[in-house]
Simulated scan of single mutants.
Amino acid sequence: MRRPRKLRRLTGATRRIAADLIARALVSNGFRPHHHTTFPIADGTYGSHESPGLSLLVLGDSIAASLGTSTVDETLGAQCAAALSRATGRPVRLRVLARPGATTGIMKYQVRKALRHPHPPGIALIIVGSNDIVAGTPLRLAARTLAHHVTRLRQAGWHVLVGTCWDVGHVPAVRHWLRTPLSRRSRRLEHLQTTAAQQAGAVAIPLRDPRHRTHPELFAVDRIHPSAHGHALHLQALTGALARTTVILSDRP
Rank of each mutant, 00 (worst) to 15 (best):
T38H: 15
G129F: 06
K108M: 09
G53A: 15
T45H: 04
R86Q: 05
N29T: 15
R211Q: 12
G201D: 09
I126N: 02
L153V: 14
H234R: 11
V168C: 10
T14C: 14
I63L: 12
A147N: 05
H229I: 01
V160A: 13
I205L: 12
L26R: 01
I205V: 15
R3A: 15
T71D: 05
R86K: 04
T164G: 05
S227F: 09
V96S: 12
R90S: 06
T214M: 03
T195W: 00
G230Q: 14
H159K: 08
S62T: 11
V150E: 13
R188A: 00
P216S: 09
V128E: 11
Q193E: 14
H49I: 00
C165R: 02
L76A: 05
A82P: 07
T246C: 12
R175W: 08
A243W: 02
T246H: 03
C80K: 04
R93Y: 05
G157L: 03
I133H: 01
D222N: 10
H34A: 13
G201E: 06
I127G: 01
W158F: 13
L182M: 08
G30L: 09
D167H: 07
Y109Q: 10
R184H: 10
F219M: 03
H148C: 04
A78P: 04
A19Q: 10
A202W: 09
A82K: 08
A228N: 11
C165M: 01
A98K: 07
G163D: 02
W158S: 03
R15T: 08
S85Y: 00
W166H: 03
D61C: 04
